[in-house]
Design a protein around this nucleic acid. Sequence first.
DNA 1: GGACGTTTGATAGTATTACTATTATATTTG
DNA 2: CAAATATAATAGTAATACTATCAAACGTCC
Lengths: 229, 229
Amino acid sequence: MEALQLRLDLNKNFFIRDPQNTELGKRIVGEGTLLISAIGFENFTFKKLSIKIGSAEASIYRYFENKHKFLIYLIARYWAWMEFKIDYNTNNIDGAEEKLDAALNVISHKAEADFTFPEIDESLLQKIVIAETDKIYLTKQVDEDNKIGLFKGYKSLCHKIAAMVTEINPDYKYPRALASTLLEASHQQIFFAQHLNSLTEVNDLRDPFGQNYGFLKSLVCNAINTVHE
Amino acid sequence: MEALQLRLDLNKNFFIRDPQNTELGKRIVGEGTLLISAIGFENFTFKKLSIKIGSAEASIYRYFENKHKFLIYLIARYWAWMEFKIDYNTNNIDGAEEKLDAALNVISHKAEADFTFPEIDESLLQKIVIAETDKIYLTKQVDEDNKIGLFKGYKSLCHKIAAMVTEINPDYKYPRALASTLLEASHQQIFFAQHLNSLTEVNDLRDPFGQNYGFLKSLVCNAINTVHE
DNA sequence: GGACGTTTGATAGTATTACTATTATATTTG
DNA sequence: CAAATATAATAGTAATACTATCAAACGTCC
């Protein structure tokens, strides 16, 4: 996948002005990703970011309504990227089992910066997702944010995986619950490995992403009763 | 389980002064639970709580260092309560499968206030857990908080469930990862049912807790009843 | 080259939050 | 009753999450 760029046409509700259209916008997104991954979302402020990029706080507010929407925006790009990679990697695959396996590989693997988004370091984006994704919906405004379509990308990805599950076993009763559990576990287990390691066998020092894949793979395969490997 | 009270001896690191020892302390905890479950943790402040209980903001600060530790404290009580209920319900059970099933029932069921903690409405505590648990560790201070033992209760519960899994199938490779995934899914699926319902088959209008149990049960049973590498 | 609209930078200001400090008044205990 | 302790009341601070204003810079259309 080289020099392949993805232009995301996100819903207007994510931002005030589309940051992909201007230099300043791209710097906000690129440096914002760096800053959040470095200091964490709670400590991140538009003021700090404006200093980092040598601009003004008010300028950032002309792109994003607030820092919560900014986080939702970044994470939406991550999940869109995941879905794009799954499509790309399953394009020429016929078997449903192999497709699901490819999808599992994509969501559980370490993300390497591949310039799909030229202004963003995708590996930092994954760091943000591991530590912060759940914060985008664990708020009092979930329902509002959901209504205006801010979680569409995540749902779409979840439905895609659920559809693969159903294709393999049409009788399985909980394809979406399984898919959302897999997606959540894919970052949770990595976080646990890094910070609360007694909650998982996934070990941060020994190929955590590979083990994560192993765990998720076994969960899915057994859940839907297919023969494994 | 009537009139059975549980006195929790929590690590001193949770608080400055043990709220279980004084009237004011109990009101802080009881009304704090109510307030957080009503307005959400982000909108919750010690100032608002002090007004609600007719006390002073500074008085609350004499019990809890900050609102983050307060949340950790409340949720620690919830998981301690869960573990207590599991012990209570598995006390006279011999079979490992039945024990695990009892544990699954406890963690996936709707919590009813049972006065185990006289000052807290446990059903509100569960509401808080569903919406806020992940916030207690998704912070930059996880490692510090972990070091001083603030997540011991959650780990202990996770290990208890993992031990049951291992008892049933000593060859299963990921007992802890499975247990933490189950614990996380137990509140996540309820949250999805309530706010992002396309992410799960669990339906908030049709016995969500029962369906949640069904999903988790099928996950576990399939995961551990199949031996494989 | 001048007029026009848009984007940005610089500065200022506000309400709220997350605390800390101080002192006076209750309340408990010895 | 005296001494110790807990609480209430008040004030204050630094940081945050914004909003508002205005002037400078820039592109572009004639």
